[in-house]
């Protein structure tokens, strides 16, 4: 039988997984949104077509993540969202603009299409930056003093670059011809920006949190933990070396940068997660202090264990249906 203490751990695991799934899945489509070239409508159409069938479901992971925070750790949910009230409002407005622009751009009069594309791009940027900003404030233990703000802005830029990078890798797989070459150039540029962002956020994080620094350097796990930064470094180098060789004579291996991007997301997220477990708000509240009543968690866990595998199955099914190069989207 699952004990009450284990329940909190299971739910923080589910929460972490949803956040990560969201960052990867909506990350690439927000990245594609930010990369929209405003001088080339044909390419914008192609890029948006590559994410059309997925974005709804991708965004649902955010609803699930916020939902789990709400269900399992209600005190943390209200503390986080009250502190981050304005940034989360801006993020939501960004997501709203981006989401509706998808449909409006295809249905309004020709002259207004560009306007909705601007809304698409701005919304994607606003949502991405605000997510990074919120992550920064969160990592600072929900402090909002000057240095925390600076760190949050740094983290906002970092997340924006991360999403742009994974978006470029997605386009490299899903597009062809001129746009694919463009995607390759974007990927090499944003890979470096992403790598700088990871380094900056990691160093600042270690510098300000004594506990985290000790955890990474002075515990028996340090050797094991060292695998994370080393792997990140290795993957960045491999990706940087591989990218120029792609598309020279053939199209082999164009999936590799996307896979590396996903791996980098896992590692960065893993690094943050091990630094702060078992805190649900860094250095302030542990998961056990905020967990909901066990009978409620059991009730929802029962359903989650049945439903989540189904969600995996039909999500994979949907990606398989739309496998291959993006073609012009059309109903019917």
């Amino acid at each position: 039988m699952i004990t009450d203490a284990n329940l909190a751990t299971i739910f923080v695991g589910l929460l972490g997984f949803s956040v990560l799934a969201y960052a990867i899945l909506d990350g690439f489509d927000l990245g594609v949104g930010m990369l929209l070239p405003m001088d080339n409508q044909g390419q914008r159409d192609e890029m948006i077509a590559s994410i059309g069938p997925f974005w709804d479901a991708n965004e649902t992971w955010l609803v699930l993540a916020i939902g789990i925070l709400l269900i399992a750790f209600p005190k943390a949910h209200s503390l986080v969202l009250q502190t981050l009230y304005l940034p989360s409002t801006f993020m939501l407005i960004g997501l709203i603009l981006r989401g509706v622009a998808f449909d409006f751009r295809a249905k309004v009069a020709q002259g207004r299409k560009t306007m909705w594309d601007y809304a698409f791009k701005t919304g994607s940027f606003l949502a991405s930056f605000m997510q990074g900003y919120m992550l920064g404030i969160y990592v600072m233990g929900l402090e909002t003093h000057f240095y925390a703000q600076c760190f949050a802005i740094l983290s906002g830029i970092g997340v924006t670059c991360a999403y742009t990078f994974i978006g470029a890798c997605w386009l490299l797989m899903k597009t062809s011809a001129e746009l694919q070459l463009k995607a390759k150039a974007w990927a090499s540029f944003y890979l470096i920006a992403f790598a700088v962002g990871i380094a900056a956020v990691s160093i600042v994080n270690l510098a300000i949190h004594q506990r985290v620094l000790e955890f990474w350097t002075k515990t028996p796990y340090s050797f094991v933990l060292a695998i994370i930064p080393i792997t990140v470094f290795a993957l960045v180098v491999i990706c940087k070396l591989v990218l120029p060789k792609l598309l020279q004579t053939h199209t082999d291996g164009i999936w590799l940068p996307f896979v590396i991007a996903v791996a980098l997301f896992w590692l960065c997220f893993g690094g943050l997660a091990v630094s702060y477990y078992p805190f649900v708000i860094p250095d302030k509240l542990t998961i056990w202090e905020t967990a909901s009543a066990p009978e409620s968690l059991r009730f929802i866990l029962m359903g989650a264990l049945i439903v989540i595998p189904c969600i995996f199955a039909y999500t994979l099914f949907s990606y398989r249906i739309f496998w291959g190069k993006a073609t012009k989207l059309e109903y019917y």
Partner: peptide, 11 residues
């Protein structure tokens, strides 16, 4: 959300 993708673009 997932089946909407198939319904709209998968025909």
């Amino acid at each position: 959300a997932t089946f909407l993708g198939i319904m709209l673009f998968g025909i």
